[in-house]
């Protein structure tokens, strides 16, 4: 290879690198707005605390509600004693059901069972239900 063709090859490689670089920058500039456009917005799920009325949760019963964009459940196991959990089964993400007679949760997808404290009683769920913080203010239950 003579000097001229070497120079030509180097110029060609430089040009190709420059073009690839510019192309990558432009592609990034075009894809970034698309990514931001499609990414879930934090604002929609930013509601930190959910307030429920005590009347909504009967003694020994459960009340399902939306907590930060996902289903959750609050229980009144004893008079004035409230606990809250994520209502999403830890197995494959189905929403659990409250069985008042047995005082336990059943996941209808694969028969996972959870106690009123969220512990796994049986079935395939690998972990207990996610527990949510509960506080009381006047006649309101504050979750989160």
């Amino acid at each position: 290879m003579d000097t001229g063709s070497k120079d030509f090859a180097r110029r060609r490689a430089l040009l190709a690198t420059l073009l690839a670089g510019i192309g990558a920058v432009l592609t990034g500039a075009a894809l970034y707005p698309v990514w931001r456009f499609l990414a879930p917005r934090k604002g929609a799920e930013a509601q930190d605390q959910v307030a429920l009325s005590r009347d909504q949760v009967p003694l020994g019963g459960a009340h399902f509600f939306n907590f930060r964009g996902r289903p959750a459940v609050v229980l009144q196991t004893r008079a004035g004693h409230f606990t809250a959990f994520s209502a999403v089964c830890t197995h494959l993400g189905c929403v659990i059901q409250w069985q008042a007679a047995e005082q336990r949760f059943l996941c209808p997808c694969h028969a996972g069972l959870f106690s009123a404290e969220g512990a796994v009683l049986g079935g395939p769920p690998p972990r207990p239900l996610e527990s949510l913080a509960v506080s009381l203010r006047d006649d309101q239950i504050l979750v989160g």
Binding site: P33, V34, R36, F37, A39, R41, G43
Partner: peptide, 9 residues
């Protein structure tokens, strides 16, 4: 007005 870059799209 609300969706990021929605105005652009």
């Amino acid at each position: 007005n609300e969706v990021p870059y929605g105005w652009l799209i």
